[in-house]
Design a protein around this nucleic acid. Sequence first.
DNA 1: CGCTATCCCGACCGCGCTGGTAGGATTACC
DNA 2: GGTAATCCTACCAGCGCGGTCGGGATAGCG
Lengths: 164, 164
Amino acid sequence: MFFTTKAEYGVRLLIELGRQGTDHPVSLKAVSDAENLPLAYLERIVALLKRAELVESTRGAHGGYRLARAPEDIAMDEVVLALEGSLAPMECFVDDRSDDGRVLCSHHDDSGHGCATKLLWTRVQVGVLKTLADTTLAELIDFQTRQLPRIGERAREQNLPAPA
Amino acid sequence: MFFTTKAEYGVRLLIELGRQGTDHPVSLKAVSDAENLPLAYLERIVALLKRAELVESTRGAHGGYRLARAPEDIAMDEVVLALEGSLAPMECFVDDRSDDGRVLCSHHDDSGHGCATKLLWTRVQVGVLKTLADTTLAELIDFQTRQLPRIGERAREQNLPAPA
DNA sequence: CGCTATCCCGACCGCGCTGGTAGGATTACC
DNA sequence: GGTAATCCTACCAGCGCGGTCGGGATAGCG
């Protein structure tokens, strides 16, 4: 398992903010209802997004959250990083964070033969980071709204078994 | 954290088999000593590699393990898959295994708006799988043996603090 | 002014998995 | 037969994840 539900819920939350809240703030309750996610848990998740300055909040009645930037300017690497804390493929990748999310291997006992696995994990990490960076929130929102109208219809078009 | 220590230890084990055991089988004890890993734990890990037919075993005294194929023919996707069981980026990616390691998303309540996150996680998964498939065991063995001879030397070249 | 909807924050908690150990059975070389 | 090794199963502590609870602060509204 690469990512936890924090990433899943957090991304879904951002998508919902992008879909519902063009102007007015969207309450967590609305998101919780739309996506069928536990409200109390969402509160903790959205806190991570706020700390990363990906969303802004309005307190009080009729308050809620809205995206801090345009969906086109929100890349998934930043999002997942904010939600998961770090993106180290292995435990030995200590959270250096000198650059941004890029972490380095620090084995306890590199005595002699430095870890060749480092080469492998680094490749994986860089690849994942690149994949995430290449996907923007706008893309996901677009993908979802285009699948919304008639899901059985599209399934038949693509010659797939219709979902139950 | 993407991968557990199973993957780390398993890969290191394979590397050690490739380095030490060109002809004769290598005992787990030897690997355990060389890599400083718990022997009993290695036993359970190597069992996974054997079930995946990546290593072969010889029982009895002077027995041990050897690679089932040439290092050039062992790609990391197969290795990591054997060690970790699956490579699903999210919990909702159920282990279909129709193709090979490729898994599909099956959300509980896709009611209406199918998960757009699926798009994201699929991209990540495919990317990781590709990265792993592009790295062979031979490459890692080569990488390590080339770093072996004088590690202090290389550290000084790169203007880094020498390891303790 | 008080009510209520909302954000905010910290404490708490059960469960499953990871990493690791223990102990023994089996096999084969000498 | 001793011994070095693979094999197998059960066991266990720690920890992080997913989730809840209770309460405090804050702002619109009648």
